[in-house]
Each structure stands twice: as C-alpha cells, then as structure tokens.
Amino acid sequence: MSIEISNLTKTYKVKGREITALNNISLSIKEGEFVGLLGPNGAGKTTLTKILATLVSPDQGTAFINNINIKNSKKIRQLIGPLFGENGGRSLYYRLSIYDNLIFYSSLAGVPKKIAKKRINLLLDYFELDKYRDVLVMKLSTGMKTKVLFIRTLIPNPKILLLDEPTLGFDANTSDKARNILEYFNKKFKTTIILTSHNFQEVDSLTERIVLIDKGKIIKDCAPESFKQLASKNFIDIHFSMKKFNKEIFSALISQVIGGQLVEIKRKEISKNANIFNARIVAKKFPIIETIALLNSMIVERGGKVFQLQPYQPSLKEAFLAYLNSSEKKYEENIEQKIKISNR
C-alpha cells in the first residue's frame, strides 16, 4: 500500500493574504514503511496529512495511494485510517458512551458487528478504558478521549494509518502502549504509517525514516540515525570548571565569541574553589574543530579548566531544535540581505 506524492502544492487565502502551506512537494512511501513527519508549527505537516485523508484538496500536483488517485475519495477512504489528535476528542459524539461511539464508527468502516465488538473489548482492556465503556464521552478527560480516538482508528485495521499527534495528552504508560501496538501493526500487518508528532522519543523509537518539513518544503528525508549523525558534526560536549560563573554571560560569550549556541548546561559538582559544569554547544559560525579550539581558549582565558571536550551525537529532539534555530537564522539573514539589496 504505497503512497506517491508529486508536486503537491496547497495555498490558503486568509484575509486577502496567501499562505503557502505546501510548496511543490514530492514524496514516495513504500508499503509497510513507518515514516515520521517532523517540522515546526505551520510547516505543512497537518495539511499534507489532511490532503492524503481527502479532507483537503490540493491546488496542484497529484497523490496516489495504492495507485488510486486521491481525487477518488470514496475508494481512498476505505484504505486509510486518519487520526487528528489536535481535535482533542471533539470528533466523538459527546452524548454517546465510549462503546456506542466505537460501535458506530466501526459500522461506518465496514467492520462486522461481531468482530467489532471483540476488537473494541480487547482494545478497551489494553488501554485500560474497559470500566469506562458506558461513560458518556463528555465526561472523559482529554487524554481518555484521545485514547478513544486512537482505538477508533485501529479497529478497522486500515492499510494506511495517518496519525497526526495521536498521543496528545497521553501519560507515559499509555504512550508506551500506543508505541507498542503501532510497532506490532507495522511489523505484523505491514501497515504503512505516517506519524506526525512532537514527541521525539516516539518518532525516534518507532520510525525508520523521518521527513522534515519546513515552510511547506521537504528539507530532509532520511533515517533518524542519519539525521542525528548529520547534526552530531556540529555538537560539542564539554566538561569544565569555573570559579565565577553566570549562565547568561556564558551563553552570550558562546554566541558572540565562538559563534555557537548553548543548548544545555548542567552543574555537575559544587566545590569550595570551583564549580564543574557539563555543557552542550552547537557550532554554527565556524567548523567544529575551530569552534572547539575557540571554546577551549575562551574558558582558559577566563580562569577556567577544561576536563573533557568532544563531539557527541545529539538526540533527535536536540538535532531538530538545532536545525530549526539555524534555519530560522538563515531565513532572517536572507530577509536582511534582501532588505539591504532593495535599499541600495
């Protein structure tokens, strides 16, 4: 159940302004792939998911699911299971119980009643909702409503799952269960899954491929490990000591003197004569070797000592955040350049 997207463009008109949500993107997803969609807010991730779910029509370009054009929405909707977690459970009937909602949607999805009942009972038990089965949805918490949405999406066992923030509001235990079941569906049923999430741990552990979208364009399309390795070329881990230390001043020095960005700093030890810190820094302006040299000099000149200084592989979240900051800065620099050229 493959997905082929070609030159997809979508523009929204908001109060006379045009906002490009998707800008000529192309993407190929093979059957059984588990793909993570990452990007800042407003990047176009939800628009892409809604286009594939046939809830939004593109302005240009085509998309095919299992060689069926998404314009044939009736056939496409029989193949896919969309979940939009942003709704916070609002796409459930408030005055029906959990069980009645799930039976209703199972009927619509063509699941025979006997099988639907069995699947509902098992999933309610799995997600620890069985004792709330007869409770009206309006009495549930946000997390519980999202669990019901999650269960609703799984019941028909669709060939393709389009999950947009599916675990919003989940506690740690439920997130684990959700991850487990998605993994099993992907491996056992070869379900193609597109997962949009700001839960980086989830994306990192589940997906075999991440697609980074920013301002409507695909910026990176690679395995999570590759993305982290690319980012690790710029990440430095340092253990150092300093007698007098101020975080704001240190951060400003990192930015102005060595052209980097302080990602994280932790106090490791407090002693009479000096404090020992562990910091993570992203090299931006200079190559990493030069940045390491500058960093070392900067700390020593200010009476500090460097115990350990090495590149390190960031987490997916750190890599993503660092990428975002650098792309924003490039965007701002581009704008400044354009302003300078136009003022000449």
């Binding site: 029989q78 025979p112 699947r119 098992l122 569906f185």
Partner: peptide
C-alpha cells in the same frame, strides 16, 4: 490482540 485484526473490513 493481533489475531483478531486479521479479518478484513468489508467495503462501505
């Protein structure tokens, strides 16, 4: 859970 998800849904 998984064995109960093998049977396919009918068409709408």
């Amino acid at each position: 859970i998984l064995p109960f998800f093998v049977e396919k849904s009918k068409k709408h």
